[in-house]
Design a protein around this nucleic acid. Structure first.
Lengths: 349, 349
DNA sequence: GTGAAAGCGCTAACAG
DNA sequence: CTGTTAGCGCTTTCAC
């Protein structure tokens, strides 16, 4: 059905070796022959099978991508960056998602290794303590992490601690003093830790007391009563929330609205990620922005450099690449004045 | 580096054939032998190379997925559905995006064919007139379309015409009479056409005059002056907008807000797609909802059924599968009363 | 400049 | 029950 090199050889009246050469080393074959072979190739619409090549020990031009989920646009944005460069450079992507599940991560890596991917671009929960990454190191399978905040492994990320620090300082600059950090419930990720660290440092620098991150169930329709109590009751209720990612911020905002709190009047919100979509919200979501697409692109470039052995020419010495973050001052942050901070709308209705 | 079946054979002291049998037909080999072989497999951490199998003419267990983009969550949601079933059933996904570009579509299909994918799941702009799909038919490469609205080719979709019809009737039921449809600028897609048809039918059935779809530049930060003029000026300005997809609706809403229009007070908005994210917006986006994830799942099932030749057992006779749509009555739609519909906020300020 | 042949990892006859 | 062998599509010596 699909023509093979044999069919071309037969059609052109030459051996398969000549056809192969015509494809891979045109200058080594007689121009007349070359022309005939090329005509046969066109006539049969032949494309060499990567399978044959791969088996022969050639490069597979296959890169594995392992992401927690693509439901979160952060990862979709990274993937866009990777995909763009990959397809432009003639590489294929094999995609697997894990939902942060260790079994699925293991399975994904195994599967992709079987397929002889030349390298892996991935995001895991916690890079430093991830046993599978040690295995990859041992097995010599090249990889680059995205968003994982580690200095021990090849990775591309923002400085999560510093970025969170800057974000929370912005909240403080707007007059907020009681600021709480919210995190997803399965959030034992390295970056969530770093972000909390940055939060704590910003608080302490301003003479404020940081609190542990409050865990929020990502998938629930409403905020849990206990969380809601934390956020709304008492004179010590927070005036601003720093959410460990934008999607969480959106979920939290919905929960607050349902509890009749107005944003930003009754509560300011700062997210993290800088989802493109955040700018479309009303009010536009303030966020600590990571250049997600660029992170994908950079991860690709670094992986490819290592795969092709041209890593040194990149002029990079360190294992990790830290891309600059930025702050999006969306309208979900209100400046606060001391006199009205304790009288939320819902209390007065 | 990576162990082959030979290494296992040598390690276990049997022939490669026995090893192969131990893997693929354990019952045909002596239990004692089987045990030894399995120990060697574990010891060497051997996993059979799909390459060898594929080359041998076995099934590749590889499915190609071609999407316009993953920046639009509609497609990300579909992909989630596909991925979930695929990985559960031991298939691998090869993903390529096209941005609706014909060259990239061609290239994606070629590439995936070279890799001997067993089938293709894809979304194109216009399925009926797409020459590449005819080629696939001719070449015997199985595929299933998602979201494309056609009866001529295997596809899974909602009834876009009917869904739009229902959506616009909802707008009419809320008292709207001047309803405009907005579409993305490169929107010569089959589903956009069907959605406009549904819009037009709903309008006519209510004795109203449908207008051609107004094209909006998706990527611009602001709505163009000419579009804005259409939407805001004169006594005949629309009171409701039917946007051909949710992302467009979000862009349009931002544009309207920047023009100082309040939603839904000054303008009601209805989207199409039912993005999960829409419910997180404020106000929650009203939308004609397609079950995107289920569309992905169904496309997978149908493709797999055709690939494995069990299509008949699905009990389906028609080429296309139409999944039910639903209406999400978000707060972006206001009921309208005739007396105030001509005095938008911005005119009175 | 071209062809014959080996071999990549694996499965499937076919022998024994 | 197990081993030998051919061959999947391709590249690459090695002869000619």
């Amino acid at each position: 059905m699909i023509p093979t090199i044999k069919d071309v050889a037969a059609h052109a009246g030459f051996s398969i070796a000549t056809v192969s050469r015509a494809i891979n080393a045109p200058h080594t074959v007689n121009p007349v022959t070359l022309d005939k072979v090329r005509q046969s190739i066109d006539a049969l619409n032949f494309r060499p099978s990567p399978l044959g090549r791969q088996l022969r020990g050639e490069r597979t031009r296959l890169i594995g991508v392992i992401l927690p989920t693509i439901a979160n646009p952060v990862f979709a944005e990274c993937l866009q960056g990777i995909d763009e460069l990959a397809s432009a450079q003639g590489y294929r992507l094999m995609l697997m998602t894990t939902q942060y599940d260790a079994d699925r991560e293991r399975h994904a890596i195994e599967t992709l290794r079987e397929h002889r991917v030349e390298g892996l671009i991935l995001t895991v929960a916690d890079a430093d303590t991830h046993p599978l990454l040690d295995e990859l190191d041992r097995a010599g399978l090249l990889y680059v992490l995205m968003h994982n905040d580690t200095v021990r492994r090849p990775s591309v990320s923002v400085d999560n601690r510093l970025a969170a620090f800057d974000g929370v300082r912005m909240l403080i600059a707007h007059g907020h003093r009681r600021i709480l950090m919210l995190a997803g419930s399965l959030a034992a990720s390295d970056r969530a830790r770093q972000r909390h660290l940055g939060y704590a440092q910003a608080m302490e620098q301003a003479g404020l007391t940081p609190a542990p991150a409050l865990e929020v169930d990502f998938n629930a329709d409403e905020l849990s009563p206990s969380v809601l109590a934390h956020l709304t009751s008492g004179p010590n209720r927070p005036t601003a929330l720093f959410c460990s990612n934008d999607l969480l911020a959106m979920v939290v905002m919905r929960g607050l609205r349902r509890a009749r709190l107005q944003i930003p009047h009754d509560m300011s919100i700062l997210g993290f990620d800088g989802l493109a979509m955040g700018e479309l919200l009303s009010p536009p979501l303030a966020s600590v922005c990571a250049p997600n697409r660029e992170i994908g692109c950079a991860a690709w470039q670094r992986l490819l450099a290592r795969v092709t052995g041209t890593y040194e020419t990149l002029g990079e010495t360190s294992l990790t690449l830290t891309l600059p973050h930025s702050l999006r001052e969306g309208a979900t942050i209100a400046a606060i004045s001391n006199r009205n901070e304790n009288s939320p709308t819902h209390a007065s209705t």
